[in-house]
Structures are given as structure tokens and as C-alpha cells.
């Protein structure tokens, strides 16, 4: 079992819900990566999704696109971010999950990237533009490594596809709560919870919900149906606007279940 899955299951076994905040690495400068990761760790994050900026982020909404542009201007990229994280990895005790589009990995070189990720103690990998059908591009390089390749699952996909993805998933299942891009939304309908509970029934690893989850109410609502949540845009925005109190409030939500 991967370290990432273990960490999430340790949380859920303690009758708590997992909470994975997303940061745009380098938004505010490369040295903020350490501050943000340690802050989130201190306030109870189960794991942290570390977003790598990209020139053409097709799966992201305006908030993360803007953060990505700021990070790019600070010189953030796959290479500089992994080097930065490696420099303070001994202070990090929760799993870090890298979220990057595929092209920077291809350019880096897949084996070289996996080596650098291991050196930075990265425990999971999310590639939003690489569906399962194309995953063999990286699976050989990941074989035998403790880096979980996380699958996103779209809840409106046919059941057979959902089952196939759930069977292949590692670490946790990233249930995409809306057909769309990242960013905040007003609310979620009841049908979504039916989908989430159905996914939960077939999953053998934890199921976390993400996309559009931005308030404490959203977190609590999602946690009725799944093992935890991923919160992206709301965290990125709050860090950018230096509203650390708001992040603390969000992070406390899962403990109240």
C-alpha cells in the first residue's frame, strides 16, 4: 500500500475526514512553497496537492490560471519546484502529491522526473491531461516507486468506465464533482451524492471529492458521502490574499464530522 493511501486511511480510521489542500507552487515566489506547506501541515492537512504552473492549463479555471501565471513569472517550474521541496523535505511529515500537466514531465524526461520527485519525497502524482488509456507513458518509470498515480473519475461517466478507473486507481480516487474546470461553485445537487456514494461502494481505496469545493459548508456536505475533500481555488486565493485565518477555518471543518 502506498504511503499516500496509508496516510488517508489513518485519518479515516480515526473517524476523521481527509482534507487535501491544493497550492499553486511558486505563487508569491519559490520561497513561499515551504511556508505554505508547513502552514498547511501544522493546521492538520492530511496531504498536500502541489500544483505545478503550466502555460496552457486546460483543466483549470480563472483562479488557478491566474495563480499559475504569477508562479511562472516567479520562475516556478517542475525542476525549480522539486528542487525547492527537496531542500526542506525532512520537515514535511505528510504526503505531497504533485499535480502537473503532462508536457513538462515529457520535456523533463520521465525517468529523470520520477527520480527528482523521489528525491523531493513526493508520494503521489496527478496528471489531469493523461487519462488511464495513456498512462503507460509513465507507469514503467513509476513501477516499484512509492508514488501513487491518482486517477480522476468523472461521475457522469458510464458505470463500466468508472469501475475500470476505480480498479486502476492508486492512493485515493479523485472524484470530480462537476463536469468542468477547477474553481468555485455555488452548490451541488443531491444526484451528486448518489454518484459519490455509488463510487464509494465499488472503491477499495479512499474516495475524495474535488473541483468546486470552496466553503466549509461544501466540505461538510461532501464529507457526508466520501472520505474527504480536495480544496484548490479557495486555498490558492486565500494564500494570495494572505487570509490565513480563512484557511484555518476550512481545515478545521473535517474534524467536526
Amino acid at each position: 500500500m502506498t504511503t499516500l493511501q496509508q496516510a488517508i486511511e489513518a485519518t479515516t480510521r480515526a473517524h476523521d475526514k481527509a482534507f487535501i489542500p491544493y497550492i499553486m507552487a511558486g505563487d508569491g515566489g519559490l520561497d513561499t512553497i515551504k511556508q505554505q506547506i508547513l502552514f498547511l501541515q501544522q493546521h492538520g492537512a492530511t496531504a498536500i496537492e502541489v500544483g505545478i504552473p503550466f502555460s496552457d492549463p486546460v483543466a483549470d479555471g480563472p483562479t488557478i490560471q491566474a495563480a499559475g501565471l504569477r508562479a511562472l513569472e516567479e520562475g516556478a517550474n517542475l525542476r525549480t519546484i522539486l528542487a525547492e521541496i527537496a531542500s526542506f523535505k525532512d520537515e514535511v511529515h505528510i504526503p505531497l502529491v504533485v499535480m502537473t500537466y503532462l508536457n513538462p514531465i515529457i520535456r523533463y524526461g520521465i525517468e529523470a522526473f520520477v527520480d527528482a520527485a523521489e528525491a523531493a519525497n513526493i508520494k503521489g502524482l496527478i496528471i489531469p491531461d493523461m487519462p488511464l488509456e495513456e498512462a503507460d507513458l509513465v507507469t514503467d518509470a513509476l513501477a516499484g516507486k512509492d508514488i501513487a498515480l491518482v486517477q480522476l473519475i468523472s461521475l457522469t461517466s458510464p458505470a463500466a468506465r468508472i469501475e475500470k478507473l476505480a480498479a486502476a486507481a492508486q492512493g485515493f480516487i479523485y472524484a470530480v464533482t462537476v463536469n468542468g474546470i477547477t474553481g468555485t461553485r455555488d452548490g451541488f445537487d443531491e444526484a451528486l451524492h448518489d454518484h459519490l456514494r455509488a463510487l464509494k461502494r465499488i472503491a477499495t481505496i479512499p474516495v475524495l471529492a474535488g473541483f468546486g469545493i470552496s466553503t466549509r459548508e461544501h466540505v461538510e456536505a461532501m464529507n457526508r458521502s466520501v472520505d474527504g475533500v480536495i480544496v484548490g481555488s479557495a486555498i490558492v486565493k486565500a494564500f494570495h490574499e494572505q487570509r490565513l485565518d480563512d484557511i484555518e477555518v476550512l481545515l478545521k471543518a473535517p474534524a467536526n464530522q
Binding site: 486546460v58 483543466a59 503532462l102 489531469p128 491531461d129 493523461m130 487519462p131 488509456e133 495513456e134 486517477q151 480522476l152 473519475i153 468523472s154 457522469t156 461517466s157 458510464p158 468506465r161 478507473l165 470530480v176 463536469n179 468542468g180
Partner: peptide, 9 residues
């Protein structure tokens, strides 16, 4: 087919 999962279907 290098697209977000949402588009695969």
C-alpha cells in the same frame, strides 16, 4: 487522447 477524464466519454 490526452484530455481531462471528463472528456473521455
Amino acid at each position: 487522447q490526452f484530455v481531462p477524464e471528463t472528456l473521455m466519454t
